[in-house]
Design a protein around this nucleic acid. Structure first.
Length: 549
RNA sequence: AGCCUGUUGGUGAAGUGGUUAACACGUAUGCCUCUCAAGCAUAUAUACACGGGUUCAAGUCCCGUACAGGCUACCA
């Protein structure tokens, strides 16, 4: 029996040969330096912050080199897949402006290198598995999981490396005849690589991010095809990224230790190896230690966490960009009118160890980002957030659209804008008092002035003799000063500080009385603006209420 | 247990053999016609894990130690 016939028995009904598949997917015609890469998730429907980070970098690298970024679905583990997982991934990434040139889309596939879903590529994997079997580079293995476990324990007790390799690879040297007999007896089998590596030999590997290192050769006869005929990640990776003509494999750091396996596989298959870029994991501080952000333990691992908090997606991207290349932050500072697309990322500037995910820093970036938005944009985002998380507030925003935009415009749209909104779940806390429906008079525990008669005097004098809603800001302030002086308070803070004993108090105390009466808060944005927006009627109403208390 | 990677002020992070080790976040104080947010100014930190070596010169190169992280599946 020839090896070809033998391979046919092991892997029957393969429609095309590997040569035919090679011809089906020609080299891409792209300009020099163009990066072809992919994002290849399992359709679990859950986007981890780390996955967002990785896909962001991959997409960016492809885009900035005029390359190709495609979406491949790795659904070889059916247990984990969920129904609408693919659409969810596509939708979630689109919110972060991560779009694909090619691959799986919401309505079918796009591109000439498909199918892009691994469960539809079985024939391709088998064609290449046959090639390896024919060349005696792969073999069927009949070991059960129990046997492998026993082996594993035995290796541990002997303090040897665990795994299916060398003398521990029991099926490796079975003859064709022995194998055929087992198959005829109905024994289940998997296909393993017949490794030609030597663990004691080392080779030099250069990662685009981590740089050069010496790695031991792989000597494990790892699994290529599982008993259900579906490939493992390793095998699918080699076949897919070769045929899809991927130039750079950009993926999470957890794959780094599989590099010896992957390099070996590419070589044994006769493929040119792609370049690799392993992205270091996102870490968080946990009891003084750093560890990878875990989707089980850490709520901030889920994208939905930020959505709920109301951190704009753009701000998250900006933060991920500074994590990717820390010089991005400085560049952004110097190029305020430019955006993410104008910045060129470099692999070699990416962190080689872990990357600390600093929530405070993210908040800071978010705060700065929001401060640069126009009032109407803030309104839109605040409304979008409220619609999901605070329906009453959303209604309030919608019924008072123009008014709300004016509120958001206080000290905004200027060179040094106000920076008090860091995330949208906090917006209501910042502006509630501007709405009659939410306004509540405060408990009147003034800070410096406690005498009730004095408070009445100040409020009455101000509203009856001094305030005019049509005054411009300077006049408004001059009048406030004038009144302060008339009532025995310092109108000028410097003078007050020099001789505090000459006065009952100062202009700050006076405006505080008015501020609290109108807003029931002792910290607010510019009072002049607030009063203008509130309008005469509301001002009078609120002062009346304050006087009654 | 094995293999791999990392360790720079309170935190993140520049720095690929050569003054005084960037910058950002944080903190503190002061200034800005009212309180905040900010902005500006100043300050702040015992910062190159430890021990050897190479060199005229080491955060940077080499070796060892400690600590931390990642990976070691018929998961991806």
């Amino acid at each position: 029996m020839t090896r070809e016939e033998y391979a046919d028995i092991l892997l029957p009904d393969v429609k095309h040969t590997y040569e035919e598949y090679e011809k089906m997917y020609p080299e891409r015609d792209l300009k020099e330096g163009a990066i072809v890469t992919r994002y290849a998730p399992s359709p679990t429907g859950f986007i981890h912050i780390g996955a967002l980070y990785t896909s962001f970098i991959a997409g960016k690298m492809a885009k900035q080199t005029d390359g190709v970024f495609f979406l491949r679905i790795e659904d070889t583990d059916q247990k984990r897949s969920i129904d609408d997982g693919v659409n969810k991934i596509i939708d979630d990434l689109a919110k972060f402006d991560i779009k694909f040139d090619e691959g799986v889309t919401k309505d079918g596939e796009k591109g000439k290198y498909g199918p892009y879903t691994q469960s539809e590529r079985k024939d391709i994997y088998w064609a290449f598995a046959k090639k390896l079997i024919i060349e005696d580079k792969a073999y069927p293995c009949f070991c059960s999981e129990e046997e492998n476990m026993k082996n594993h324990k035995k290796q541990e007790s002997l303090k040897e490396r665990t795994g299916y390799y060398g003398k521990w690879a029991r099926c490796r040297n079975l003859s064709m005849e022995e194998c055929l007999e087992k198959i005829n007896n109905g024994e289940q089998y998997i296909i393993r690589l017949k490794s030609n590596g030597d663990f004691n030999k080392r080779f030099t590997f250069k990662d685009c991010i981590k740089g050069k290192s010496e790695l031991p050769e792989n000597d494990e006869d790892f699994v290529l095809l599982k008993s259900d005929g579906i490939p493992t990640y390793h095998f699918a990776h080699a076949i897919d990224d070769h045929l899809m003509r991927t130039t750079h494999v950009i993926r999470g750091d957890e794959w780094y230790s599989s590099i010896p396996k992957h390099i070996q596989l590419f070589q044994m298959l006769g493929f040119k190896t792609p370049k690799y870029a392993h992205i270091s994991p996102l870490l968080k501080e946990d009891n003084g230690n750093r560890r990878k952000i875990s989707k089980r333990k850490d709520p901030e691992a889920a994208i939905s966490f930020y959505h709920e908090k109301g951190i704009p997606n753009k701000a998250i991207m900006l933060y991920l960009a500074t994590l990717a290349n820390s010089n991005f932050e400085m560049w952004m500072e110097q190029n305020k009118d430019k955006n993410l697309d104008d910045f060129t990322f470099e692999f070699k500037r990416m962190s080689t160890g872990g990357t600390m995910f600093d929530y405070d820093k993210l908040i800071n970036i978010s705060k700065n980002y929001i401060s640069r938005l126009k009032a109407s944009e803030v309104y839109d985002l605040a409304l979008e957030h409220a619609k999901i998380y605070d329906k009453n507030f959303a209604t309030l925003l919608e019924t008072n659209k123009d008014y709300s935009i004016k509120i958001f415009n206080i000290e905004r749209e200027q060179k040094k804008p106000r920076k008090d909104i860091a995330y949208f779940s906090d917006v209501k806390n910042q502006v509630w008092y501007m709405y009659e429906e939410l306004f509540m008079p405060a408990n009147y525990n003034w800070q410096n002035i406690t005498d009730k008669n004095e408070i009445e005097l100040i409020l009455n004098t101000y509203i009856n003799e001094y305030y005019n809603i049509n005054d411009d800001k300077q006049t408004w302030f001059d009048k406030m000063k004038e009144m302060a002086e008339k009532l025995g308070y310092a109108g000028n803070m410097k003078e007050y500080k020099e001789n505090p004993d000459n006065y009952k108090g100062n202009i700050a105390d006076i405006s505080m009385i008015i501020r609290v009466a109108l807003t029931s808060l002792n910290m607010t944005p510019d009072l002049y603006e607030i009063m203008k927006l509130l309008g005469m009627e509301n001002i009078q109403k609120r002062i009346k209420k304050a006087l009654q208390a």
